[in-house]
Design a protein around this nucleic acid. Structure first.
Length: 421
RNA sequence: GCCGAGGUAGCUAAGCUCGGUUUAAGGCGGUAGCCUCGAGAGCUACUGGUGCUUGUCACCACGGGAGUUCAAAUCUCCCCCUCGGCGCCA
């Protein structure tokens, strides 16, 4: 959420940012109008309340007759306060709704451009593997080895759900443990948060109200299935004022994640886009002046996962038209999948600046006698499992249909070095 | 799920019966200043949020919301959470 005061004082910059993001400018105009009315009414309400407080203090000291007169007078004021409070509340809720639906300001270093086309490829690591046979897709490999079962996943739950079997299931577990152990070495504290999250937390990180359609909702209890561990982990410190000495805080968490993918066809074959997937997440809470540098190290920490698996990948810096609603700057890591002949987004590393912290009220104090400030939050996938699994299967496949287990995972596979039929 | 007790500032804890001299007391912790060679002790001030006209400023804030009233931490209703006890349960 942007600061209302910031929007007031930097209207032109916000207008330009919305334009670059391809957003409707009427949101901004409506906000400014409501905000002006809100301030005028609030001021009027405040001075009426001041009067009420003053007179209320006097009343018990007055004689009976004087009391009657004052009370009669105050009845009118109480009435007017009620009316003003009513309209303030109405304006406020519309204004806040607009505010919640206004995207973050892109960082100045983010290239301006239309979605996808404007993105900049920053660097590439390794190169796409060359085959002397025709590489299979991961679903062909998975079904050939009987380690991925799409049909039974669809039977048990529905389309977009799949079952990992045998060494496939073990490989998934190995990947999770490999990632968590690596991130622990990098200085992240491991967490295992709840899989269901309340409404307030979803608003705190920006999933609600904007992406409601993409979330699974448990209606009876108004709880939401975790869409990314970013939500429970970032909200850990909601409504808190942290001590400066606590910062920076680095957390990593493995958590199943759920996406309805509303409006998108799950026509993609395989496991690149599914409704339930495992993900290891990295979350940082940092001092504002360090968030730029922290984004670079966050990205490096996520890259280390892919490098350790020896998967070729490239880094995409998202342009203003691509960058997500609540992010100020985002790098994607795209691992190569030679069977599909595609680059798969396995990680998205973002700097949210104070956008989430303002929503979730996560603050810190530099010195005990100074005013509290919002922290900056960052997060990145470290990394998403199914696409990593897809890239591993396709990169490490052999001509006979078997898959060589990457060395980094073998300690977690109890010595299994090849997954064969 | 049922019964009971609770939720007040960074922590702790009065106030609630009986609405208005309470500026939400007191204590602990913290920060700054005085004092000191230095530390401690002691003393003084500050220690929730928002707004702007930046001041001996105003408003808001006692788990959240609604209501009663001239006036609510205090009275009424609904909800949430914590701790006990019972029930159920992998």
């Amino acid at each position: 959420m942007l600061d209302a005061k910031f929007i007031r004082d930097n209207t032109e910059a916000v207008r330009q940012a919305l334009k670059n993001r391809n957003y409707d400018l009427s949101v901004l105009e409506r906000f400014l109008e409501l905000d002006g009315r809100w301030r005028a009414l609030t001021e009027e309400g405040n001075s009426l309340r001041q009067k009420r407080n003053e007179v209320s203090e006097q009343i018990p000291k007055l004689s009976k007759a004087e009391k009657q007169i004052k009370i009669a007078e105050m009845k009118g004021i109480a009435e007017r306060i009620k009316i003003i409070e009513g309209s303030v509340k109405g304006i406020e809720s519309e204004r806040d709704e607009l505010l919640l639906n206004m995207p973050n300001m892109p960082d100045p270093s983010v290239p301006v451009g239309p979605q996808d086309e404007g993105d900049v490829f920053v660097r590439t690591w390794g190169s796409a593997r060359k085959f002397d046979f025709k590489p299979l897709t991961h679903w062909e490999i998975g079904e050939g080895l009987d380690i991925i079962d799409f049909d039974r996943g669809a039977k048990v739950t529905g389309t977009g759900f799949y079952v990992l079997k045998g060494d496939g299931a073990r490989l998934e577990r190995a990947l999770i443990n490999y990632m968590l152990d690596l991130h622990k070495e990098q200085g992240y504290e491991e967490l295992f948060p709840p899989v269901m999250i309340n409404r307030k937390s979803c608003v705190g990180t920006g999933q609600l109200p904007k992406m409601q359609e993409d979330m699974y909702w448990v209606e009876r209890d108004d709880l939401w299935l975790n869409p990314t561990a970013e939500v429970p982990v970032t909200n850990l410190y909601a409504d808190e004022i942290l001590d400066r000495r606590q910062l920076p805080i680095y957390h990593t968490a493995y958590l199943p994640s759920f996406r309805r993918e509303a409006g998108k066809h799950i026509e993609t074959k395989g496991i690149a886009r599914v409704h339930q997937f495992n993900k290891v997440e990295l979350v940082k809470f940092v001092l504002p002046e360090t968030s730029q540098a922290e984004l670079e190290t966050l990205l490096a920490d996520a890259e280390a996962v892919v490098q350790g698996l020896k998967l070729p990948y490239r880094i995409r810096l998202l342009c203003t038209g691509s960058v997500g609603f609540h992010s100020s700057k985002t790098y994607d890591i795209e691992a190569h999948a030679p069977g599909m002949d595609q680059w798969l987004e396995v990680s998205s590393c973002s700097d949210f600046k104070d956008f989430q912290a303002r929503r979730a009220m996560i603050k810190f104090r530099r010195e005990p006698h100074l005013k509290s400030e919002f922290v900056h939050t960052l997060n990145g996938s470290g990394i998403a499992l199914p696409r990593t699994m897809a890239s591993v299967l396709e990169n490490c496949q052999n001509e006979d249909g078997s898959v060589t287990v990457p060395e980094a995972l073998r300690p977690y596979m109890k010595g299994t070095s090849v997954i064969g039929p």
